[in-house]
């Protein structure tokens, strides 16, 4: 697990406030709250904030692919989103940096047991704002082999990218999915092997959104981001996995609006 180490080092290198703040009590009463909060938030101010919305189903129908959407658009100055599940063996799933993009991210993750699933949103001032829910899951999301390993065809489609774009005002919503086994390293005889970073750019190379991705993101990872797009341009997507392979593709400018009336 080389990448996570680098990730931790990056967190540790964040400017620590002179006097570390006391952690607020966890409304989810998680046994791992203190453990994760101390490591992830490194002494910066932490609060539970209703402006952070985390959307997920009421049950984990498939613990190998549990959908989560995080929307921090109501929180001015959000610059980073960390998605984590306290009781997963690989707790952090995603560390997202919307560079010229909304603080919104959706993906599917693995769950290894009943656990809080949380969104931690960091503002420009370094403070962290959290939301989360307990979700019940039966075991094995991280410790069972991915379907493509069982089927044996994972290598045939490795790195294939699918996606599309939809207008959302002056922005564009992009849904991007990759074929990748996203091996956790927790299954016997299959070493960890996952996509570990993804960048979305304008066709001219300007980066719009960047994320670190960990082994607890579901097999064939899919992401939704909402990027600035006043000029309706084409995009490029690039990703690298822990084996050093790079995958990239280009997306034509969006031509249709996002589905309206989510909550009529």
């Amino acid at each position: 697990m080389m990448r996570p180490t680098i990730f931790l080092a990056a967190i540790a290198a964040l400017p620590a406030s002179a006097s570390a703040q006391a952690l607020p009590a966890d409304p989810l009463d998680s046994p791992m709250w203190q453990y994760h909060a101390e490591r992830l938030f490194a002494g910066m101010p932490v609060s539970f904030d209703e402006r952070v919305k985390i959307e997920m189903p009421i049950i984990a129908e498939n613990q190998h692919a549990f959908p989560v959407a995080i929307d921090a658009r109501a929180l001015p100055g959000a610059r980073r989103i960390v998605l984590f599940a306290d009781l997963n063996p690989i707790p952090v799933a995603l560390d997202y940096r919307p560079l010229a993009a909304e603080p919104f991210i959706a993906t599917r993750i693995k769950l290894d047991q009943a656990t809080p699933v949380r969104a931690a949103v960091q503002l420009e001032d370094g403070s962290w704002h959290l939301a989360g829910k307990w979700i019940d899951a039966s075991g094995g999301g991280c410790s069972a082999p991915p379907v493509s390993r069982v089927r044996g065809d994972w290598a045939e489609h490795l790195g294939e990218i699918r996606g599309s774009g939809w207008h959302e005002g002056s922005e564009t919503r992009l849904r991007i999915s990759f074929r990748h086994p996203m091996d956790t390293g927790l299954v016997e005889n299959i070493p960890a092997y996952n996509i570990d970073n993804v960048t979305v750019s304008r066709a001219d190379g300007t980066p719009l959104a960047r994320m670190h991705v960990f082994g607890s993101v579901a097999e064939d990872p899919a992401f939704t981001v909402i990027v600035d797009d006043p000029a309706r341009t084409a995009f490029s997507v690039s990703a690298r996995d822990t084996g050093g392979l790079e995958f990239s593709g280009s997306l034509a400018p969006a031509t249709r609006p996002v589905m309206a009336s989510l909550h009529p």
Partner: peptide, 12 residues
């Protein structure tokens, strides 16, 4: 229409 799975779960 571009909805993520979590959003689709909340459709009316």
């Amino acid at each position: 229409g571009g909805l993520s799975m979590a959003e689709a779960g909340d459709i009316a």
